[in-house]
Design a protein around this nucleic acid. Structure first.
Length: 629
DNA sequence: GTAATCACG
DNA sequence: ACGTACGTGATTACT
């Protein structure tokens, strides 16, 4: 046995590295004892983040408690791998920091399924997010192990990930090649691998104390673990990539970007992504900027809106306006930047992240934003272009299946009505089905309802648009000026619309004031309906309305995922997209699935019906956005 | 690392 | 008393 002594918070700890069969037996004996006393901390070291790539390897599996850690060299195979799998499958409880990552690794590379591990996992990252969800850039500690360990355990705890990159460099490796290339016996690598579980073990105890002191509901913690499991299974399932289509599209986007870039070069622009060059060339062509077309640092803006104006194109549709002479450079920049971005952010990542089986497995972070909202990365499948179907066309339902999308109808408005107990708004949602068909030909619409409430039966589409803007303003905690700026409406008209909105829905402002007052009294934290802690920025307390609505809307989606899982629909789930679930459904059974899915996504929230409707497409996701396949 | 930009709900 | 637009991820240029 190789042993590295260390100290955490002034207490001696040991990191053991078994070298032979006898050492592994010693580990087994420790594991039996330790796991009888309580949960054991678990972590893995791997070759990187591309879990589904053919060359991926699981290098070590670490187990530990507050005093002792064992680093099992899984990569050596034989008894080493066998011993790690024995412990993993013991049925014992584990503490993991950011469990979904290790679940995915162990599921694919250590034959231990997510379904087996998740019910006996405590994720310290989830717990930390329930204490304070803010990321470092928002004034929080973030939920990485390092800052949490520094705060809760030992301010001098090493930055095990960050310090290793320095070790990588000293070995002639980089941040990306280091994890695969560092020798398995490297002392720092092994010590830090062990420290991670020692810190996780101690962190769990500290977080339990904190959660208890803050009266965070145990039910909420359990709920988040369920959602994390469902999202981890979604990641493992992944989505079918139409590789041939994607490659062809990728090549044509690259060609388009190059072609338009050379068109721009004729005007002296050698790099369309360099704002300074664009400003100079466009100024030289006689273009002029309005006073508000400046970046926060005061430079002239050369964004999509400005370039559309110069190119005489409608911002939304991209069609020629005929209001001025179109600037050919602006048009070339727009086309080149769009094609270049789509190739690098979308088709390129699809191709480079696809597994050998031709599926993409995005990382789904089930609790990422400060409101608890989920995020999806590598690739960012929540942010694919929706105005054009070509990118979504690359992603397919399974063989013999079609894509289905089930999205909530105006969920944040409904949540607002429920939370603030907005009488008239609740009445509208409650009777949504009983209005005459000629009043709402496309189904009930809250914005038209509001317009009619104020203007009577003669309310127009233009009225609806104004009240829709006001509704969004309320949900975002904005004012009439901001909404007017965003929507292009006249500020004076919007001011009147806001006043009328407040008159028919007076509860919103009252609730906003109450929430803000309560937050000031209780340390700038709003506790949501589900018990989630939502820290507020002192100078942006008005954002509480948005946080409350966005966060409860997220929990509506979370509850839907749990309902879908209970109904056996997790194998069909593909992605959670804020107010929508995306599914792959057998082509011949659409009718049955529609009933089953909608059953899981329709429920009551404090007297307000939350409604969702399933829409079916063809084989590709793009079919829901106009593509013919 | 920060700023600017653009994609989404 | 007044008024505040919310939350993300990814890429590229630049210091």
């Amino acid at each position: 046995m190789i042993t590295y002594p260390y100290a955490i918070a002034g207490e001696p700890v040991k990191v053991h590295i078994p070298q032979d069969h006898a050492d592994l037996v010693e580990f087994r004996n420790w594991f039996i004892d330790a796991s009888e006393r309580g949960p054991v901390a678990l972590d893995t070291e791997t070759t990187g983040l591309d879990i589904y790539a053919p060359s991926y390897r699981l290098r070590t599996v670490q187990f530990g408690d507050s005093r002792v850690a064992y680093v099992i060299h899984y990569e050596r195979g034989g008894h080493f791998a066998e011993t790690a799998r024995w412990a993993l499958r013991s049925g014992r409880k584990f503490q993991i920091h950011n469990a979904p990552f290790d679940w995915a690794v162990l599921d694919r590379h250590a034959a231990t399924s997510i379904e087996s591990l998740a019910p006996r996992t405590i994720d310290t990252r989830l717990k930390a997010g329930l204490v304070d969800p803010r990321q470092p850039q928002d004034g929080g500690r973030g939920t990485a192990l390092k800052p949490l360990a520094a705060h809760y355990i030992d301010a001098a705890a090493p930055d095990t990930q960050g310090d290793l990159t320095a070790v990588f460099r000293s070995l002639g490796l980089t941040k990306s090649t280091g994890w695969a290339g560092i020798p398995l016996d490297h002392p720092t690598y092994n010590l830090y691998a062990g420290l991670d579980v020692l810190l996780t073990s101690r962190l769990d105890v500290a977080l339990d104390r904190e959660l208890d002191a803050l009266s965070v509901r145990p039910r909420l913690i359990a709920y988040e673990h369920e959602i994390a499991r469902i999202c981890a299974v979604m990641q493992r399932t992944g989505m079918v990539l139409d590789v041939d289509y994607t490659q062809t599209l990728h090549d044509s986007l690259i060609a388009e970007a190059a072609e338009q870039e050379s068109a721009a070069a004729a005007y002296g622009v050698t790099n369309v992504n360099a704002p300074a060059q664009l400003r100079e060339a466009l100024t030289a062509m006689g273009e002029e900027w309005a006073a508000d077309e400046r970046t926060p640092s005061g430079m002239l803006k050369v964004d999509k809106a400005v370039l559309h104006r110069f190119a005489d194109l409608d911002f939304a549709s991209g069609t020629p306006l005929g209001t001025r002479v179109a600037n050919p450079l602006a048009a070339a920049i727009l086309r080149s930047k769009r094609a270049g971005k789509w190739a690098s952010a979308y088709t390129g990542t699809f191709l480079s992240s696809a597994s050998a089986e031709g599926r993409v497995h995005p990382f789904i972070n089930s609790m990422q934003a400060r409101t608890g909202r989920m995020s999806i990365t590598r690739p960012a499948l929540q942010t694919l272009p929706s105005g054009d179907s070509m990118i979504r066309r690359a992603l397919l339902a399974d063989e013999g299946h079609v894509i289905a999308s089930c999205d909530f109808s105006a969920v944040e408005m409904r949540v607002l009505a429920a939370l603030a107990d907005v009488k008239e708004m609740k009445r509208g949602f409650q009777h949504a089905d009983s209005y005459p068909k000629d009043e709402y030909p496309n189904g009930f619409d809250i914005h038209m309802f509001t317009a009619r409430l104020v203007k009577g039966a003669g309310a127009t589409k233009a009225d609806r648009k104004m009240f829709k803007g006001a509704g969004f303003g309320k949900v975002y905690g904005g004012g009439y000026r901001g909404v007017a700026r965003q929507t292009g409406a006249d500020p004076e008209d919007m001011r009147r619309t806001f006043a009328e909105y407040d008159r028919v829905f007076p509860e919103i402002k009252r609730m906003s004031n109450r929430w803000q007052r309560e937050a000031y009294e209780t340390g700038m934290v709003h506790v949501s309906l589900t018990g989630r802690r939502l820290p507020l920025d002192r100078d942006r307390a008005y954002a509480v309305v948005n946080y409350a609505c966005q966060s409860v809307a997220r929990d509506v989606l979370g509850q839907s995922l749990i309902n879908l899982d209970a109904a056996g629909l997790t194998p069909n789930l593909r992605l959670p997209i804020h107010d929508e679930g995306l599914f792959s459904v057998p082509k011949a059974e659409q009718r049955e699935y529609k009933v089953a899915i909608e059953e899981c996504m329709n429920f009551d929230l404090l007297g307000v019906p939350i409604t969702a409707e399933c829409e079916f497409g063809g084989r590709s996701w793009g079919s829901l956005y106009g593509a013919d396949y």
